[in-house]
Amino acid sequence: MDIATLDHICALSKLNFTEEEQKDMLGQMTDIIDLMDTIKEYDITYDDTKDHNEIGYGDLRKDIPAPSFPTEKLQQNTTPRDNCYVVPKMME
């Protein structure tokens, strides 16, 4: 793994590293990827229809609404404004 790839994956992951952290992480991730790469030698293809974990259409939840959750309790782990979650202003 190179720095550019790590940067890209960090962007996808919404993580930042200091230069020093990045060096460590790059080394560790390289080791990890090397381990993962050993599966490339195994020749096998995936067929999602053969997972056999499907359920039937009849097993789905019936469309019956239930009362929603008390807003205050739902938001007990944040500080809402006008019952809304607050985030830094989004640009379009």
């Binding site: 469309d63 959750f69 807003t71 739902l74 006008d82």
Partner: peptide, 28 residues
């Protein structure tokens, strides 16, 4: 539909902010 697609909250349009929500659709 009467309820949301992945939880039992009402799927009606509008309502007070976050009043038609539960732990599932709020991503708890």
């Amino acid at each position: 539909t009467k309820s949301k697609v992945f939880c039992t909250c009402s799927a009606e349009f509008g309502g007070e902010p976050n009043s038609r929500c539960c732990p599932v659709c709020s991503g708890l």
